[in-house]
């Protein structure tokens, strides 16, 4: 009787586990668009600014305690939208998008700091969405390095094959490159594939 009462009280006051979900990938893969889609659907507010200029997200963007309901269950997540990881940051690339030289150099400096921050977070997330642009070659060393380092820490990973709304999208190429991983085709822009993504996150972290 006492034991039952204790369990009832424990359940009542037990803190719900909050999952830290990191969004990883190369610049312009659509991480912020996806993070915004999830945050807007479940909190009504976006998390990050999006732009076609690479490295728009230059610091880790956080949205805490986002409650997602999947098949009658609640998943509480801290969403962490990471800066895109790259092996090079050339300020001249930003100049080509119309930014001044000074603005471009400042953006490059901030982007390098953001990449270091994103790499440091690899060790602290509970689960990760590795977002890939399905119109681009997925077999890059950056994608391999991100996936390998997450795997080495036994962090659950889902590959999001984003931009399926575009004609050049080739999800099969991502499946061929990473056959050992769960791959969910999504258009973060249009909202296609989101239910499947929520179900997969719930099944991976239970």
């Amino acid at each position: 009787m006492l034991d039952g009462l204790f369990k009832w009280f424990s359940k009542l006051f037990k803190k719900k586990k909050v999952l830290s979900l990191g969004f990883y990938g190369s610049p312009n893969a659509g991480k912020s668009t996806l993070a915004n889609r999830i945050c807007e659907e479940w909190t009504g507010e976006p998390i990050s600014k999006v732009s076609e200029v690479p490295h728009e997200t230059r610091t880790v963007q956080k949205k805490e305690k986002v409650v997602v309901k999947v098949d009658g269950k609640e998943l509480v997540m801290n969403i962490l939208d990471m800066p895109g990881i790259a092996t090079k940051v050339d300020y001249r690339d930003f100049v080509n998008y119309g930014l001044s030289v000074e603005e471009s150099q400042q953006r490059a400096r901030e982007a390098t700091k953001g990449i270091i921050e994103a790499i440091k977070w690899l060790e602290h997330v509970d689960a990760a969405l590795v977002v890939m642009d399905s119109t681009q070659d997925p077999y890059t060393q950056v994608n391999i390095t991100i996936l390998g380092n997450l795997e080495a820490r036994n962090i659950p990973v889902i590959i999001v094959a984003n931009k399926t709304d575009l004609k050049k999208s080739n999800v099969e190429k991502i499946k061929e490159a990473f056959p050992q991983h769960t791959i969910i085709p999504v258009s973060a822009l249009k909202g296609d594939g989101m239910q499947q993504l929520y179900k997969t996150i719930a099944s991976k972290v239970k």
Binding site: I85, A86, T87, K88, V89, D90, Y91, R92, Q105, A108, T112, K113, I115, I116, I119, K120, L122, Q141, V142, I144, T145, G148, N149, A152
Partner: peptide, 25 residues
Amino acid sequence: LKEEKELIERTMKLISKDFPGIEVS
């Protein structure tokens, strides 16, 4: 993979006007 991760981190600390980064495979 750990060394590659560290290489990217350390490359970022060296980036300048004259050294935009690396390609690695």
